[in-house]
């Protein structure tokens, strides 16, 4: 499967929303998030570490997500799991509404 490069202007908003949508469902660690996005986009959208982590840092600084270190069961190194805060859930709900409006508009205009 060929991955596509998402331009910077699109990337910051879309990937941030995608990350939030995943984290609202359950907590995940960085690499897991990037793999999940790759899987759900059928291998087309690869979020590199240079994109993923700065978004996570920003969301965490703004109190939208938070994190905790957790060692996996059995062998393996501890991982930093991210999850959405109460404030983050509200933020996500608003973001999602905006997104739906934008998508509806863009679908019409690009038809």
């Amino acid at each position: 499967m060929i991955t596509i490069e998402i331009r910077k202007e699109l990337k910051s908003g879309v990937i941030e929303l995608a990350i939030l949508a995943l984290l609202v469902r359950r907590e995940m660690y960085g690499y897991e998030l990037s793999q999940k996005i790759l899987d759900l986009s059928s291998g087309q959208i690869e979020v590199k570490e240079g994109t993923l982590y700065p978004i996570l840092y920003r969301l965490e600084e703004r109190g939208i997500i938070t994190s905790r270190w957790q060692a996996p069961l059995g062998r393996g190194k501890p991982r930093k799991y991210y999850y959405v805060t109460g404030k983050g859930r509200q933020y996500f709900a608003g973001y999602r509404k905006e997104w739906n409006v934008v998508v509806e508009f863009m679908c019409k205009i690009l038809e």
């Binding site: 660690y29 960085g30 690499y31 982590y53 996570l56 190194k77 991982r79 930093k80």
Partner: peptide, 8 residues
């Protein structure tokens, strides 16, 4: 972050 990412 990179250390954790590469370990995974």
């Amino acid at each position: 972050s990179l250390t954790e990412h590469i370990e995974a």
